[in-house]
Design a protein around this nucleic acid. Structure first.
Lengths: 206, 206
DNA sequence: TCCCGATGTTTACGTCGTAAAGACAGGAAG
DNA sequence: CTTCCTGTCTTTACGACGTAAACATCGGGA
């Protein structure tokens, strides 16, 4: 779409915006090769720089994947928000919207979702990553609070509500992304939206 | 505990039971280094053979991880069965037992669980792996059938029951293994068993 | 103007997966 | 009993990777 930061073998010695270009290249690399085949040198090649250039912007491969994961978390929250804003204005619908938004993100960005949750490679203590992931989590908690009328994190019952909701949504996203849900999912694309909503609807608290 | 197939640098040129020894070493390697740090040469070292010896028993690294994943799937089903046999003889209790057994396995064998579900490395079309994973899945379906009195896979509503149950159980297992459930889980070990049962209980069909 | 720090490149080292060729053992065929 | 033949293990070799260190190039402030 937009990110053509790449191939024309640049004329200037210095790149100018390499850090951003590397993140774009890294996402493309992740999508094409998967997390298992992801390679620092491949990212550098794709960005048109030497294999050692990334070291000036990312301490090592893990740092680069961590930065990418942080943007992924940000987009996860955005996907949830998009769904919520388009939903009817009752608490139940808004909760289901948050959950389906989570799954939307996973299905639209399987590689990023896997990076974020299904691989130990990003540094899960990174402040940026923690901040953005925490914001997405807070969205879910807030959706539950709007139903129960109290802070779910305050008591054990509420925390169980949150754990159950997150588990169902996250489990569905993971299994769908891994392709293990095939026999259970409607064959026709048209039926999938309703299916998704009914699935998430099963775990509405209360 | 048992698998001391290793270090005494053997006296015979031929090993005798290398395939099995490699699988034992591979599991230890996986547990210590994690799936990211898993190395074929490391496994060979641990088993006390040259780095090229495994090639005679496993086509490549993926084949070795696939074989290990197959045993993991087998043990997953065993963990579910153990719970079910110890449970009260009503359909609801037996369903919850299957789910908690799934989570038991994940918590007791985080590395194997991650290998099985959270990494694209094993070949998911391998007949052995398909067979054992299918058996575990069938256990869950059967537990649901015992509640509804019909084959859940026969109609859309039943498939939704299965999808929801599997999603919740799998999501909880994944998030617990990844350590992301910490703030939601009871602090005291004593309370965790009841918490787990209530969590799985939230998705009982019907 | 000079020079200094930030940004890229080259070179180098150790590890990894995999393939090919050589060493060794034990059983089948003569 | 001897001779191979095949399966098992070792050695050697190659290219790719991650990382570090030394070197090149630029732009901006003293």
């Amino acid at each position: 779409m937009t990110g053509d930061t790449t191939h024309p073998p640049r004329t200037t010695y210095h790149h100018g915006d390499l850090r951003r270009a590397l993140l774009v290249a890294a996402e493309a690399e992740l999508i094409e090769r998967g997390i298992e085949g992801f390679t620092l040198r491949g990212v550098a090649r794709r960005a048109g720089v030497s294999h050692a250039a990334p070291a000036h912007h990312f301490k090592d491969t893990a740092a680069m994947l961590t930065a990418l994961a942080a943007t992924a978390a940000q987009r996860l929250k955005a996907a949830m928000s998009r769904r919520r804003e388009a939903a009817p204005d009752d608490p139940r619908s808004r909760f289901v919207a948050s959950g389906t938004g989570y799954i939307d993100f996973a299905l639209e960005n399987p590689a990023l979702f896997t990076l974020l949750f299904g691989s130990g490679r990003p540094d899960s203590d990174d402040p940026d990553l923690v901040r953005h992931a925490g914001a997405a989590f807070a969205d879910l908690v807030e959706a539950i609070a709007a139903i129960s009328g109290k802070d779910p994190l305050a008591d054990a019952e509420g925390r169980l509500d949150v754990a159950a909701a997150w588990s169902l949504v996250h489990g569905a996203a993971s299994l769908l992304v891994a392709g293990r849900m095939k026999p259970l999912r409607p064959a026709a694309d048209a039926d999938r939206e309703a299916w998704l909503q009914r699935l998430v609807g099963r775990i509405v608290p209360g």
